[in-house]
Design a protein around this nucleic acid. Structure first.
Length: 419
RNA sequence: GCGGCUGUAGCUCAGUUGGUAGUAGCGCCAGAUUGUGGUUCUGGAUGUCGUGGGUUCAAAUCCCACCAGCCGCCCCA
């Protein structure tokens, strides 16, 4: 038996309905902030990610689906979308169009990690990028927008974490300081931290081992080492958020795993997810365009929502929510009635009604199905009805049944959906 | 990539010290009711017991490997 490959999955009804609702909410919010959709290929040149995301990151180092094409070029299934969006921006000279370039995307990403709940090898992200502005207002607007999306799908109890990781001017200085401090204290920390102290000092700040927390508290903080422009930028972002009553927590130890981040970084976490508790992450990436070879400096800020995780929370918090249901189930009695019913259904569907016709089975079976499918009304069409020009319309909730003419039927369902 | 737990019907699960797989619940199909659902009653279908090896007269049960899922680590969305 052939099964879905490890770490991938089928999204079936009724869950697919939740996915669609989440996506519609996101599209509506994007629309309100004047974002437009961009669709980029799933397949990209490997160099896009090694240069964009960073050779040293886990994503590029050990999680990409990379293969050699028949012409020997190296291709990769995209592990994230920001690099692709920036590539498209540069390739199509979108810097030439006026104003801020605001783009959103949704679609599958691929990372070869060990699968777990909330972590898949093919997963879906909904994200947005605001390109062309260094203003802290852009940071604030992006964060505000993501908060609106979460509100829109009914998510509560999430926490916004905020940090600034500085820029190429101040971050290296900080890392140097951190390294020096770690020389003395690292030997007292967990094995992982001792390793990180040498390889990737920033990650020590992110360690979750309880025993290490006391030591981590004493380590230097990036926020004390920001250069003047970075400090001002960060303070302004914070004041913008406060003015909008968006609650956040400063996490000087919030370190993102992609090399392109500069200045503002943020993350939203939710308790219902277990160890995969991050539902979205984002930040500013002012140097990304240059690392992809652009001569036009293009600052940007964006975020990416883990759609699988978002849907998981929505499903848990609103289970039993009604799916968009079947309005009318038509039960024809016999061949002639079926023909008649198909025409009738066609007319009613034109006005947006969700109609299903029973192609086979006895009336009892049809009524049973109408009930199981959750139809609001059932319409019985038999020889008597065709001859008299009337139908039997039954309200499935109350059991009330009455005779309606064809005109009455269309008045009720066809012209306006009074249900 | 590392460690742990789990894998029996569409779903949730029983299955004793190894002895032919369950009157199990829900769901599905049919009948009781030849033009009327939800309740009730009756009947029915569906399993390579995750896969492959091994031990044994005999394996769902014991052993090994693999696969998949879940939990933790790592990392991230």
């Amino acid at each position: 038996m052939i099964r879905a490959v490890k770490g991938t999955r089928d999204i079936l009804p009724p869950s697919s309905g939740v996915w669609n609702r989440v996506e519609s909410v996101a599209r509506a919010v994007f629309q309100a902030y004047n974002y437009q959709e961009i669709r980029t290929p799933i397949l990209e040149e490997t160099a896009l990610f090694s240069r964009g995301v960073g050779e040293e990151t886990d994503i590029v180092g050990k999680e990409m689906y990379t293969f050699e094409d028949r012409d020997k070029s190296s291709l990769t299934l995209r592990p994230e979308a920001t690099a692709s969006v920036m590539r498209a921006y540069i390739e199509h000279r979108l810097d030439q169009i006026p104003g801020q370039k605001k783009l959103y995307y949704m679609g599958p990403m691929f990372r070869r990690e060990r699968p777990q709940k909330g972590r898949y090898r093919q997963f879906f992200q909904i994200g947005a990028e605001a390109l062309g502005s260094t203003s802290p207002a852009a940071d604030a607007e992006v964060i505000e927008m993501v908060v609106e999306i979460l509100k829109g799908v009914g998510i509560e109890n999430s926490q916004l974490l905020l940090n600034s990781v500085g820029c190429p001017a101040c971050r290296p200085v900080f890392i140097e300081r951190l390294r020096e401090t770690l020389k003395d204290v690292a030997p007292t920390m967990c094995a992982d931290c001792q390793r990180r102290a040498g390889t990737n000092a920033l990650r020590v700040l992110d360690c979750k081992v309880p025993a290490d927390q006391a030591v981590i508290e004493t380590l230097p903080s990036i926020l004390d080492h920001l250069c003047e422009p970075c400090r001002t930028h960060f303070d302004t972002v914070r004041s913008y958020l406060s003015e909008r009553k968006i609650l956040f927590e400063i996490r000087p130890r919030l370190v993102r795993g992609l090399d392109y981040y500069t200045r503002t970084t943020f993350e939203i976490v939710h308790g219902a997810l277990g160890s995969q508790n991050s539902i979205l992450g984002g930040g500013r990436y002012d140097g990304l365009a240059e690392s992809l070879g652009s001569k036009v400096p293009t600052p940007g800020i964006g975020f990416s929502i883990g759609e699988d995780r978002l849907v998981m929370i929505v499903e848990e918090s609103q289970k039993g929510a009604d799916a968009a249901g079947l309005d009318l189930f038509i039960a024809p009695m016999g061949e002639a009635a079926l023909r008649h019913s198909m025409l009738l259904a066609h007319g009613l569907r034109k006005s947006g009604l969700c109609v299903e016709v029973a192609f086979e089975g006895k009336l009892k079976r049809a009524m049973e199905l109408a009930n199981k499918l959750g139809a609001k009304f059932a319409l019985i069409v038999g020889d008597d009805e065709i001859a008299s020009g009337n139908y039997a319309l039954k309200d499935m909730a109350t059991g009330e049944q009455k005779t309606v003419s064809r005109v009455e039927l269309f008045e009720r369902f066809g012209y306006a959906r009074i249900i």
